[in-house]
Design a protein around this nucleic acid. Structure first.
Lengths: 313, 313
DNA sequence: GTCTATCATAAGTACACCTTATGCATGTTC
DNA sequence: GAACATGCATAAGGTGTACTTATGATAGAC
């Protein structure tokens, strides 16, 4: 007997099975994470390869043909068989995703977003390990690392998440009382943070640090603390606008200027190269890159919509 | 339970199943019509997606791991299920391939090659229908048409097979006795075929037809007859070198000049666009295009290796 | 009549998958 | 113990399939 199966792309069977089960191209597309057009295309292609119509297209609804019904039941049976076998064979603990992350990223970014991921992936437990050192991936249940740097780590595949930006932030009350409109106005404002960071910032906006920049009044141990201080009205701090997007949007923090001053490097998501396609890793990666992308466009939108006080450059 | 299957390309399962069954990357590659490298790549990719080794690689041999064994039996079961369902559902008569073809192509080209196809496809019966008219594809069990023309037929997908070339051919004895070395020598030779074809040929090689070209001595009803006449030593005929490749190679015919004079158009393989992926059609098409390709390179090699008597241009 | 939900189709695009080419290790032959 | 043969691994590069985006078409709901 001739092996017609050889000419049938098996991935089409998966699409067909979902479509038959949900009785809708649109819903199958949702379920499979693709577009309705793609499902429509795929089913038509399958039908042509078989030389048989699988669905009758009525407007706004489809119905399986007789052949479609027969194929559907076989497909679902075969897919379930495979599904069981694969779950059976796969690496243990596909149900727990281990993440090591930097403190900053954990509190300022991940904490507010990870809930979304867990809602969308109720079957995946997430174990977050805050660790500022460079943890290794061998054993230890670590699947994904969130790190700061250049993105170059041997043996690891790295995907860029968030740029290392900083920009002056303060409370709306402080902004109102000091009426800061240009970088020069900051010379007389209470500054929070490391002197060299402020010097860098002034230099980047074109103000040589020769003039009498007052030393920052408060120096904390990390960015989160500094910005908290600023939010409490104690001064102006340098912070990464990506991390404080929410506070800026709801008015708890004011972003004084629209310029994003970039440091070298950035925040990266990474994992061992050869584990790139493990389902749990791939799912988290895809989700997180989506989030980062939408952050990037948020920041851009925020800058362009003039929610800042002043403009530089 | 989390659907890990969603992240597994099902086509990889087919590759895995063949590899497990044949216990060799190389042989699986042969069976699947792909390269050993591709199989190796695919299996590695699958292993990475599963996070589990499926084979142990010893040098010059592989062995299934425990997980591999479990997956192999499930895969073969699932694939057999699908195979049966698809054969069940597919259009009837996937076992008979209907071809309509032109007389010339049938006798001069197809007849000597179709055996190869049937040897390679013992499960497919071939029904050849010689028909010089433009047969239609609706019903009638016609799957594939072999036609002459421009390749533009509405509703059909056409693949180019053989160019419409012609070149003077005669028997080796005639060549020896007449000692033909230049096109001019043909003016005194006995010609076979239609006068206007010869006029066209002389014009194409740069000899205006003003001079006293003798009228052809013999005019037959088709090219096959004319070339047969030439082969019998009765004269020089114009024939398509592709069709007489074998006779030229084994010395029954001499190709006088290496120039290929091309007419417009050529021979095409065609079928209804929407049936392009029907297994029987796809298999024949792929095979035939392969043959045509190797013909083309044969002709080229023949020209370049100086098996002709004279050179033009 | 307008609006909306669904599938169809066209055009453009990207990346997965394959090939080609080569390397490497080991077993085999003389 | 060379020289060769065989089978798998790996890198680099090309290509076509299978997507997306954008738009059209149809008919049922209101």
């Amino acid at each position: 007997m001739i092996d017609n199966l050889a000419r049938i792309p098996l991935d089409a069977i998966r699409v067909f099975e979902a479509t038959a089960r949900l009785n809708s191209f649109t819903r199958a597309a949702e379920a499979l994470g693709m577009t309705q057009a793609a499902v429509s295309w795929r089913i038509r292609d399958l039908e042509q390869r078989l030389g048989v119509a699988l669905f009758v297209r009525e407007t706004r609804r489809i119905a399986l043909t007789l052949e479609g019904q027969r194929l559907a039941s076989a497909s679902s049976e075969a897919l379930n068989l495979m599904r069981r076998a694969i779950n059976d064979v796969m690496e243990q603990d596909q149900s727990v995703l281990g993440i090591t992350t930097l403190q900053t990223l954990a509190t300022q970014w991940l904490a507010t977003r990870i809930g979304m991921f867990q809602l969308a992936n109720p079957d995946l437990a997430v174990k977050i390990d805050v660790d500022n050192g460079l943890s290794d991936f061998s054993g230890h249940g670590t699947d994904i690392g969130l790190r700061f740097g250049s993105g170059q780590w041997p043996g690891l595949e790295s995907r860029f998440l968030i740029p290392a930006l900083f920009t002056p932030l303060c409370s709306p009350e402080l902004q109102a009382s000091l009426d800061i409109r240009t970088p020069a106005d900051l010379k007389s404002a209470p500054l929070v943070g490391l002197p060299q960071e402020w010097a860098e910032w002034f230099a980047r906006v074109g103000m040589a640090d020769d003039s009498e920049t007052p030393p920052p009044r408060v120096i904390s141990e990390n960015q989160a603390m500094e910005v908290a201080t600023a939010m409490a009205g104690q001064g102006v701090a340098l912070g990464n606008p990506v991390f404080y997007d929410r506070e800026i949007r709801n008015g708890h923090l004011v972003r004084l200027f629209d310029a994003n001053i970039a440091l070298g490097g950035g925040y990266w998501l990474c994992y061992p190269k050869e584990r790139r396609n493990l389902p749990k890793i791939a799912r988290f990666r895809d989700w997180m890159l989506d989030m980062a992308r939408s952050d990037a466009s948020n920041i851009e939108a925020c800058r362009l919509s003039g929610q800042t006080v002043g403009t530089i450059g």
